[in-house]
Structure formats: C-alpha cells, structure tokens
C-alpha cells in the first residue's frame, strides 16, 4: 500500500549556518536509500538547505542556541522532509516570491530561497505551533515517480 514506510530518519542540529552541511549530508544519506533521479535528489537537498537557511537567518535570527529538527520519511508514493522549530512563526507560503523580470532589472541579495523551494518540491506546507510545547512544522513533499 502507498503508506508503507520505506525509510525514516531524524537529525537535530543547532540553528547555525555552520550546520547546513550536516543537514545536507543527512538528507543525501537518507536519499541514498531511495531510488530517485539524481536531479530530484539534488533538488530535495537544495530545498531543505533553503528552508533551514530561512529558519536560521529569519526565524531564529542566527540564535545558535536554538534547535532545528529535520525528519525524513519515505513511503512508496512520497518523500517527506519535516523541519520543526520553535521560532516565531514564519510561513514561507505567505512570503512574497519575487517577480524575476523585475528582480533582474534591480538585482539584490536574498528572496530566492522560497522560490527555489517551491520550484523543486511538489508540496510545501506550513503548520504553525498552536499549543504550548509544540513546534512549527514545515513539510516539504516530493512525489515519487515509478
């Protein structure tokens, strides 16, 4: 059945850009267990990097005492990466994506991570923590093509 879990794994790291390589390695290793097109594999690693970078820089304002939890789950149909945090809510789906024509006329730093994330993933969902002790969750989903 579609919901039989093939692979699941988790990592917790401090919210520092120095930890991005550990997060990428974690996702790369988890994806090694899955039959996947290399381009899709690279895209998922990139999307997770972008999501965690946004969280570290904007959500946690570079406070490296905070934690990021990254969970990986793959079933027959989908790959899910869930990024959990306790920052003030930051919903990427609500952030403006730049108009690239205007962006190229007036180049500037930043604003491209969410666009990249949405381009390479099939679904990006955000669940805001609603009760004490719970965490915000950003769920990145990639459909598997058989």
């Amino acid at each position: 059945m579609s919901n039989v879990i093939h692979h699941t794994d988790s990592i917790t790291v401090k919210a520092a850009t120095a930890k991005l390589s550990a997060i990428r390695n974690f996702i790369s290793n988890a994806l090694q267990q899955i039959k996947l097109d290399p381009e899709e594999r690279n895209g998922i690693v990139l999307a997770v990097d972008e999501a965690c970078t946004n969280l570290i820089v904007h959500g946690y304002s570079l406070d490296s005492t905070k934690d990021i939890v990254v969970d990986f789950v793959a079933d027959m149909e989908n790959i899910y990466v869930t990024i959990s945090d306790s920052s003030a809510a930051f919903d990427p789906a609500q952030a403006d994506s730049p108009d690239m024509t205007a962006y190229f006329q007036h180049p500037r730093r930043g604003g491209l991570g969410i666009l990249l994330m949405n381009k390479v993933m099939d679904e990006v969902r955000y669940l805001r923590a609603t009760a004490p002790g719970t965490k915000n969750q950003l769920i990145l989903c990639k459909h598997r093509v058989h």
Binding site: L20, L46, D49, E50, T53, P107, R108, R109, G110, L112, G113, L115, L116
Partner: peptide
C-alpha cells in the same frame, strides 16, 4: 544555494 547566487546579485 540561493545564498551563493545572492553574492553575484550584489
């Protein structure tokens, strides 16, 4: 990643 792209944009 986009942080690298951002350097060229600057």
């Amino acid at each position: 990643s986009s942080a690298g792209l951002g350097v060229f944009m600057v």
